[in-house]
Design a protein around this nucleic acid. Structure first.
Length: 156
DNA sequence: GCCAACGTTGGC
DNA sequence: GCCAACGTTGGC
């Protein structure tokens, strides 16, 4: 059984369209311990709601899947990278990431107001801790968001 | 673009 | 270990 997550990206930084074009990507640059811990808990095959923040309205826009379990974020060791962290070391990395692949884009985005208006989604982390960029999602919540989007996953 | 809410840092 | 100061996120 997969677990379910939600990952945020600013639409003008790395959108679901960018992920569709690339096929898969390294989720680098996360510098929050709670978000990192969530990525370290991910397994290959886990499913991800892809969320665009800082657009109007912010919305869940599609689905991705974890394709590689957590490993050290290489950008933390690169002094020329904006995510460089001088306090991290290769022996004891601070920051970890996963690789995700594109699954699909919703024809109907599920906006934050829609999520907030849905009783069954009242306990989503998205509603209660808006700052966390990688968060766990219950299966029932995941299924409900997909239903609201009118999106069907390919059976595997 | 503003600013509230939150997380992190560092002085004590 | 507390907490003020600071930086960042993200909704609006």
């Amino acid at each position: 059984m997969p677990n379910y997550w939600l990952m945020k990206s600013e639409a003008d930084v790395y959108s679901i369209q960018d992920l569709e074009r690339d096929g898969r990507t390294m989720w680098d640059g996360v510098r929050n311990y709670q978000a990192r811990n969530n990525m370290r808990a991910m397994k290959v095959g886990d499913l991800v709601l892809y969320y665009h923040s800082r657009q109007t309205p912010s919305a869940v826009v599609g689905v991705a899947r974890v394709v590689r379990e957590s490993y050290p974020d290489p950008t933390q060791f690169d002094a020329t990278n904006k995510y460089f962290d001088a306090k991290s070391s290769e022996d004891d990395p601070r920051w970890w990431l996963v690789d995700i692949e594109y699954v699909g884009t919703f024809e109907t985005q599920v906006g934050l107001p829609d999520v907030k208006g849905e009783k069954a989604l009242a306990d989503m982390v998205l509603v209660n801790n808006s700052r966390l960029s990688v968060q766990p999602v219950q299966k029932a919540e995941f299924d409900r968001v997909l239903a609201m989007a009118g999106f069907r996953l390919q059976e595997s």
